[in-house]
């Protein structure tokens, strides 16, 4: 068996692949933003909210983290229409990715919140801060700084995991690659190039996230929060 590689056909279809990669990036950033907001809210309620909230959020987090992402997507895309809720494939993908990310991010942020020394929170109370003020002024920054590496890794996992949304016909990089390889039968070539694109996006994301860490936590506030090192 001898296989002759023909990469020419891949370059002919490069604009389509790049369009797919662009949707992958948009979905990942959108899901990160949406999921992060949800996660902050849930993490706050889980650590400082009323007791029934805490249990409910715990159940949500366990559900998200202990069921397959693909099944969650199928529920959103194929099952919800049965009760009259219908999403476009791309919207369903964004929603599924956001909810999935929020489940993991809630736990990550919660661990950061719990790592903030108790004495600082008590200092906040003694100054007459409300719970929200304590969260806003005392907890958020050091907590996020502590868990930043974990959140950054989770973002890269989110982006790589986005390949699964091809199954519900969202036309991101993997879906485009599948379509192209199935019409040209150049599976090896297309998957190699797609792998390279994912690698570039992941490395790019890590560099960008590192720059953000530097800009937000090191340059903007030198010396501050020094205790957390």
């Amino acid at each position: 068996m001898k296989y002759v590689f023909q990469f020419g056909i891949v370059w002919d279809h490069l604009p389509q692949l790049l369009a797919g990669a662009w949707l992958t990036i948009r979905l990942s950033l959108g899901a990160f933003a949406l999921g992060f907001v949800i996660a902050m809210l849930l993490a706050f309620l889980r650590t400082a909210g009323p007791r029934p909230f805490r249990a409910g959020i715990g159940a949500y987090v366990e559900f998200i983290r202990n069921t397959p992402f693909l099944v969650q997507l199928f529920i959103i895309y194929f099952s919800l229409p049965a009760i009259g809720i219908r999403f476009e494939a791309t919207t369903a993908a964004l929603l599924g990715m956001s909810l999935n990310f929020s489940g993991y991010a809630t736990e990550i942020v919660r661990s950061g919140i719990e790592a903030v020394p108790r004495s600082q929170i008590e200092a906040g109370y003694s100054l007459g801060f409300t719970r929200l003020q304590i969260f806003r002024h005392i907890i958020v920054f050091p907590a996020l700084r502590t868990v930043y590496p974990a959140l950054a890794s989770q973002f890269v996992l989110l982006m790589l995991g986005s390949s699964i949304v091809a199954a519900i016909s969202a036309e991101e990089l993997t879906a485009i690659t599948n379509t192209l390889q199935s019409t040209t039968f150049r599976a090896f070539e297309f998957y190699f190039v797609a792998t390279g694109l994912y690698l570039l996006m992941a490395v790019g994301a890590r560099l960008l996230l590192h720059a953000i860490y530097w800009a937000v936590f090191e340059r903007a506030r030198p010396g501050e929060w020094g205790w957390s090192r």
């Binding site: 194929f78 099952s79 229409p81 494939a89 199954a167 519900i168 016909s169 599948n178």
Partner: peptide, 18 residues
């Protein structure tokens, strides 16, 4: 045109009205 990876998913999309 909306593309799926297996016929089961295509059928499901048709039955669920997607």
């Amino acid at each position: 045109m909306v593309f799926f990876d297996d016929i089961a998913a295509t059928m499901q999309a048709m039955v669920s009205g997607q």
